[in-house]
Design a protein around this nucleic acid. Sequence first.
DNA 1: AGGTATCCGGAATACGGATTCCGGTTAGAG
DNA 2: CTCTAACCGGAATCCGTATTCCGGATACCT
Lengths: 195, 195
Amino acid sequence: MTQAARPARAARAPRRDAVRNYERIVEAARDAFGESGADACMDEIAARAGVGVGTVYRRFASKDALIDELLRLAMAELTTAAGHALARDDGHGLDELLRALGQSFADHASYAHLLLERQPDADAARRLRTAMQELTARAAAAGTIGPSVTIDDVMALVRAMRGLAHDSGAHVMDDWQRFLDIHLTGLRAGSSAGR
Amino acid sequence: MTQAARPARAARAPRRDAVRNYERIVEAARDAFGESGADACMDEIAARAGVGVGTVYRRFASKDALIDELLRLAMAELTTAAGHALARDDGHGLDELLRALGQSFADHASYAHLLLERQPDADAARRLRTAMQELTARAAAAGTIGPSVTIDDVMALVRAMRGLAHDSGAHVMDDWQRFLDIHLTGLRAGSSAGR
DNA sequence: AGGTATCCGGAATACGGATTCCGGTTAGAG
DNA sequence: CTCTAACCGGAATCCGTATTCCGGATACCT
């Protein structure tokens, strides 16, 4: 019934160049933020995308809106990863999700810090947190991590990894893996991390 | 001989209000950056210090210069801490220095991330790094940490703690301690943190 | 107390970057 | 092929902040 129900308000499919530019802009934004830090200016983004600033603003109401879009996309990836992790029934789902987070932070290093604040999709964020909570419980049950490890400990680890990704050093790209391994060792051993 | 050797170019001691304002400004800057993030504006800093912007600029050539001063002060504290840590001859000097770093990051959370980049005192930074290297070696020798732990691992931990301090959550103020304990456990246990 | 080198406040200016506007183009329906 | 809704580029505008300037206040020496 809906199939032919809008000759009155037919939304003509967007023009080709429009979609093409949309994609270019998103990618250009990632590059720009990646290089010039989170304060790359709109002019540069537009230049990288090979379009004028006006075009950028036709797609994104503001710079913030553009950033929000990047965050939404990144969060979508994480949601998928969380799904995968929850599907496992051994005690290694948490481990898997943490690695996905680390990779995501590395991929989107320049604006990763925003993923833990200004989260445009509060719902997704909440679901992700819930997943981590569940996975933490399972891991504790399976003995993959110590029984006294709390969700806060895991969140701290997440924030720490984000910080690790922040630098733009040469080798930093995979430092986080070794770091994560070490910390997981600590989580496994520690049953009463002092203090 | 130097005691009375500069009537020609006597540098009259600075006026009282001048020194008082200097201190007020530094403190105000810390507060401002702490609350409004690292992009607090000069007007606000001046207001908090109870002086006009002009006064701020008489002391600090620019906003950057002001930030550099904060960094220098923080780095001075760390240099002291490093001295303390090196003075110990048990294997816990590294541990001590790491705690000092964590505390420093917590204290200067708002601009802590700059301590690892834009370091105005390159010399101090180098010395600090050398100290950490020495302490890492000693800790490894004493068995406080695994033998395969490298200085890079330790640096990663430092960067991670800095990231941890970045958030301005309520309880974050001492999350880092628990986090550090856990990670140290990992460093002690791991002798071949795989990959 | 008097004189003056210093210091202060805050309005005025300089600047950079976000956002808006509009005349010129172009994809794609008929 | 023609026409027009959509789309484009980038100059012009707006706005928030850093930085400069200078006519008064003030601390400190004599």
